[in-house]
Nucleic acid binder design. Structure first.
Length: 823
RNA sequence: GCCCGGGUGGCGGAACUGGUAGACGCAGGGGGCUUAAACCCCCCAGCCCCUGCGGGGGCGUGUGGGUUCGAACCCCACCCCGGGCACCA
């Protein structure tokens, strides 16, 4: 008697075999067509959780199936190993973050191997590896040379909880820190920025050609937030329109220059630099008071009033000339105008902008419609289409024509010009943290900002530092690190003590994977050209904006700098974003304490069953609730496969000529090949697993039939099923293949369906009367319309339903359907 | 508020381009195996009604309309759930 299915034994055996034989190691000069599959490299958080399992199950399936289809598949693994949790742990325990991190890398590596996912481990990349830091810093210096990295004093988002600066992206809509939940405050600091805005247009335009989920593309477009309009100067005047001494002007941005005749006031942000110089003495006290409140108001307060904004503001005491009407209008400060967008000042057109309308109501300002609202419009501001009124020469024009005409006017008179604005801001990369890649810069009293020379890279953080919850990086308190000599003049200098945002590390790791051994450059052009762009990138939808945007920016910038291949405009040709794991409706997470540990299932049902369960539970892009996961059903299914393939189920195979039943099994086998091929291509893994289950159910009936199975037919069916299942359930299929055939199932060529075997002789034809199914007839699949109609009308059930009503019309769709329309 | 998704049995889901709604699995029911239980094997199974027990009929994909010979699928309005953005001029 054959021994039973023992997942623990065979999974350990095959995982060891793949590791020892370097089965999924691939060289850059591999002659097979190249294919690069990548799962977003994980933050090393310890043993894998269900989200990891799901991610790597999808990735591994692609690696293995692409390999069987004849590709050289690059499947690397790495770790996003810098970051706050390790440093916070260090502050708590005093353990060095490296020790903490490397322990967790080991744990996560082990659990990834335990689910049977295979990688070219030789190419391992970790962010904190000095070799990797060296090239991250090298890239920073190239950006600096190219003007893509710059330093400026800027109001930054400061999180009191994390004691560090946050990027705009890390501040939630309610003004709190995405990590600690503390309210974020504004502080002025010297910070390093990357000039991602230089690429705003390209980042926007190139989205169109990406094979990415539409929702991710939409999110990226919205984040970039391109808007077209005009920018122009307003001359500061007194109430009578007499220009102020000094000739001050306020520049405003608008997307609706066509409505300028309706500008009845203008607004500047409280932080606007002109506030200091243009406000007359008699308005100073009130204006200063307003500015003080506005500055102190944290984002939390500003956001807290939500829909019903109170439109706080103050009159500056001066006016600006509306160049369209040649009339002075009052200039206000208001907190609904942001210094960070456009010019920090707007022309206000209350009739066509609801926010301006609200403000005008509160402050008793006039409202002049310049667009005729549609008949019956009873709302307030009308921002839609309509003919222009009260607009001088633009009267009667439509929106597009009037915009062009208004810009024309501004440009002709030298007042302003057409202008495109973006919501996207430059990327603040400085972090006051220890556990990150140091910024390779030295400050010299004589030479100023000096780049650390390439041959002195990497700048590494010292190990002997104290981890304290202060506002400063431990690097700043380490004299040996802080004090250095200027590389240019040799005089005394201090190092930059900030480190880079960890998103910098993750913005180019996928390039390093192509050439991780390179010690002369981050990666060679040839290696990058050979593998990039990533053919299939897989990860969580939570990275839809930041990581993907930054990685796209890096790729474009590196290509333009000649570091990456010139033609490499995008890093990830195809992107797949998987759904989240929930438990009973809640997001599954450590903080909620509702984790289902993969280990328990690996110990009990095994990795193949767990992988299959993840694939079977539903569409990969959807969120899954672990309560709906049928691990038992998948384990049971694998048991059945085991018994079928080892001959434990049913009667022994016999030699005989092909019977009708044998032929049907052979056809079902070919249909399975076609179905699996199609489903894998469209990421429909749940239906693929269903097809395997259905097929094994057919085989079970087949081997139990009184005549027994035909040996050749059964062998073909089983071997084919093992080959097709090999990417999804790699261990059991490897073991069964070795027992049945010897050798390795994952080295077999991918099965091909015989088109002739996909044809069927007869099909079930549905007969409807008035659209309701009344009969089902077995008909030859070659039946024509006339025969189908004839058969359908001959059906007794149809006759019964027709009664005395003669058919008025017959719709035929041979061979599947006939619909009889009766009176 | 704006922009995306989505709503199908007790549950997860299937139905690919408008053509048999509910594949496959979980949970459930019946039978077999067993001294017994578990495992395993076979069968049933959307809801409601009728039945002479062969079967027959009606209803049914969030709600209400529409287009069509025919709608889970297309159109309009609405309700609910999830996600993104949010005083961006």
């Amino acid at each position: 008697m054959a021994d039973g299915y023992d997942p623990q034994a065979i999974e350990a055996k095959w995982q060891a075999w793949w590791a020892e034989h370097g089965t999924y190691e691939v060289d850059n000069d591999d002659p097979r067509p190249h294919w690069y599959t990548l799962c977003m490299y994980p933050y090393p958080s310890g043993a894998a959780h269900m989200g990891h399992v799901r991610n790597y199950t999808f990735g591994d399936l692609i690696v293995r199936s692409r390999t069987m289809k004849g590709y050289a598949v690059l499947s690397p693994m790495g770790f996003d190993s810098f970051g706050l949790p390790a440093e916070n742990a260090a502050i708590k325990t005093g353990r060095h973050p490296r020790e903490f991190t490397e322990e967790r890398i080991e744990q996560l590596s082990q659990s990834v191997m335990r689910i049977g996912a295979v990688y070219d481990w030789r190419r391992l990349v970790t962010s904190h590896d000095p070799a990797y830091q060296r090239w991250t810093q090298w890239i920073f210096l190239r950006f600096l040379e190219a003007g893509l990295a710059y330093r400026r004093n800027a109001p930054v988002n400061w999180c009191p909880g994390c004691q560090t600066v946050l990027a705009n992206e890390q501040v939630l809509a309610d003004g709190t820190c995405e990590r600690s939940g503390d309210p974020v405050v504004k502080r002025d600091l010297e910070q390093w920025f990357f000039k991602i805005t230089d690429y705003a247009d390209q980042l926007l335009d190139d989205i169109d050609d990406l094979d990415w989920p539409e929702r991710v593309k939409v999110m990226q477009r919205n984040w970039i937030g391109r808007s077209e309009g005009a920018e122009f100067d307003l001359v500061v005047t007194d109430a009578d329109g007499v220009p102020a001494p000094g000739g001050a002007q306020v520049r405003v941005f608008t997307t609706r220059p066509d409505t300028s005749f309706g500008m009845t006031y203008a607004v500047m942000a409280a932080e606007h630099p002109l506030v200091a110089s243009i406000v007359p003495a008699d308005r100073r006290v009130e204006v200063d008071a307003f500015v003080a409140t506005a500055r102190q108001a944290s984002d939390v307060e500003r956001m807290s009033s939500e829909g019903s904004l109170d439109k706080r503001g103050v009159f500056t005491g001066v006016y600006v000339m509306n160049p369209f009407t040649q009339a002075p209008v009052p200039l206000y400060l208001a907190d609904y105008v942001l210094m960070g967008y456009g010019t920090g000042a707007i022309m206000a057109v209350p009739a066509e902008d609801q926010r301006d309308w609200d403000f005008a109501q509160v402050h008793g300002l006039p409202i002049v419609r310049t667009i005729q609202p549609p008949d019956g419009w009873e709302g307030e501001a009308w921002s839609g289409e309509g003919a222009h009124i009260n607009s001088g020469w633009m009267d009667g024009m439509g929106k597009a024509e009037a915009i062009a005409s208004a810009i024309d006017f501004l440009e002709r008179d030298g007042l302003g010009e057409g202008k495109v604005n973006f919501r996207l801001r430059d990327w603040l990369v400085s972090r006051q943290r220890f556990w990150g890649c140091p910024i390779p810069i030295v400050y010299c009293d004589d030479c100023g900002i000096v780049a650390v020379p390439d041959d002195q890279l990497p700048v590494l953080a010292p190990d002997d530092v104290e981890f304290l919850p202060t506002g400063e990086s431990p690097l700043r308190r380490h004299p040996g690190f802080l004090h250095t000599t200027c590389p240019t003049c040799g005089g005394p200098a201090t190092r930059e003590t900030d480190t880079m945002d960890t998103f910098v590390d993750s913005s180019w790791y996928f390039l390093r994977f192509a050439d991780p051994w390179n010690s002369e450059e981050p990666f060679s052009l040839a290696a990058a050209s050979g593998w990039l762009p990533v053919d299939q990138y897989i990860g969580g939808v939570e990275h839809a904006i930041l990581h993907l945007m930054y990685a796209r920016f890096f790729t474009k910038a590196l290509a333009d700098l000649g570091v990456a291949p010139k033609e490499l405009r995008e890093p990830f040709a195809r992107l797949f974003t998987q759904g989240m794991i929930r438990l009973g409706g809640d997001k599954m997470s450590k903080s909620k304490g509702n984790l289902v540990a993969p280990e328990e299932i690996l110990d009990r049902e095994g990795a193949d069953a767990l992988r299959l369960a993840h694939l079977f539970v539903g569409p990969p892009q959807d969120d899954v609730d672990w309560e709906g996961v049928g691990i038992e059903g998948c384990a049971r299914f694998l048991q059945r496969v085991w018994r079928l393939a080892t001959g434990e189920a049913g009667r022994p195979p016999v030699e005989r000529d092909v019977t009708a039943d044998d032929l049907e099994i052979a056809r079902a086998t070919h249909r399975l090949i076609a179905k699996v091929d199609e489903d894998l291509e469209r990421w429909s893994y749940n239906t693929t697993v269903a097809a395997f289950m259905e097929f094994s159910n057919d085989l079970y009936r087949y081997v139990q039939a009184p005549d027994g199975p035909r040996a050749e037919t059964l062998a073909f069916a089983l071997d084919t099923m093992l080959e097709l299942m090999a990417p999804m359930a790699p261990h059991i299929t490897a073991e069964l293949w070795q027992r049945r055939r010897g050798g390795h199932v994952h080295e077999q060529p991918w099965p091909q369906a015989d088109p002739a075997m996909l044809l069927v002789d007869t099909v079930t034809m549905v007969v409807q009367v008035n659209g309701k199914v009344r009969d089902r007839l077995e008909v030859p699949s070659s039946i024509d319309a006339a025969e189908a109609e004839c058969l359908a009308l001959g059906s007794e059930k149809v006759q019964a339903h027709l009664g005395d009503n003669p058919p008025r019309k017959v719709i035929t769709r041979p061979p599947s359907l006939v619909n009889i329309v009766a009176g």
